[in-house]
Amino acid sequence: MNNFQYTRVKSPATAITELSKNPAAKLLAGGTNLIDLMKYGVMSPDKLVDINRLEFSDIKRGQGTLHIGSMVRNSVAAADATVLEYQPLLSQAMLAGASAQLRNKASMGGNLLQRTRCPYFYDITADCNKRAPGTGCSALEGFNRMHAIFGASSSCIAVNPSDMNVALVALDAVVQVSGPKGNRSIMMADFHRLPGTHPELDSTLDKKEIITGIVIPDNAFAKHTTYLKVRDRASYAFALISVAAALEMDGSTIKDLRLAMGGVAHKPWRLTEAENFLKGKTASVANFKLAAELAMKGAKSYGHNDFKLKLAPNSIIQALKTASGVKA
């Protein structure tokens, strides 16, 4: 690990000033990912700006919204009664991620920004455009079992590893940020980027900005939500495929729904075409299969992850079955 400076800030304004002064500074929240990356030599910030004392730790109801502060710990949000009542999908997704110890430490803002777990990103002797732009992508023809099938580029086929992000993109969440130019809101769907030719950039957050909170609009999905995470072991493993499914049912008809997938792209992957197809249709396995086919349009695999072309639609069907309660 390189030497670095450390400062603890007490106001968001100071945090923004620190980031503005030093482009190589990084915010330190839960540290569950950043500290690991520093130990591996993947990230070497000059300065850590500790924001753990900032007051972004409330969960509250707004006008038809749920607001979760960026410093709320994942375990706190997942167990919160308001979250469970209004947005149970978010709780399910967060509990599927990491381990109890990590969730106790990890913040909402940090989870939004957690970096890919591509092994070549972590191995500093390997070529990796995300870690060292211009060196190439080792995963493209390497061990890419965990890698993307949607939206990848020849520069990078890494996936966003977060479970929480999949639920948030399904729930049309909005990320609230603050920076030198004031406050702004970023739609969750626009928050994470596709790799394109700049895989070093995970999100559209400016380097001088700080995440203050997450806002989720109310919905009528609470009774029919599922977060399905398919992985190589039952806990503490990243998703091969995950599916967030939230349905509003009117008898056997799907009145409205949201679908998103994890483990398939550089960003949490919203399944808009499948949603449009199923909206107003009868909940049936036959319709789920057709929706899954639509969702898979444009998928591309890279060898070790060929299985995802089958596992992904199967998982979509399964998540819809569980969320709707439909068996046939």
Binding site: R117, P119, Y120, G142, D232, R233, A234, Y236
Partner: peptide, 14 residues
């Protein structure tokens, strides 16, 4: 490739 304890899987309680 999977030298870490996160990537090399051994069973967990679940």
């Amino acid at each position: 490739v999977n030298a870490s304890f996160g990537d090399y899987h051994v069973p967990v309680n679940a």
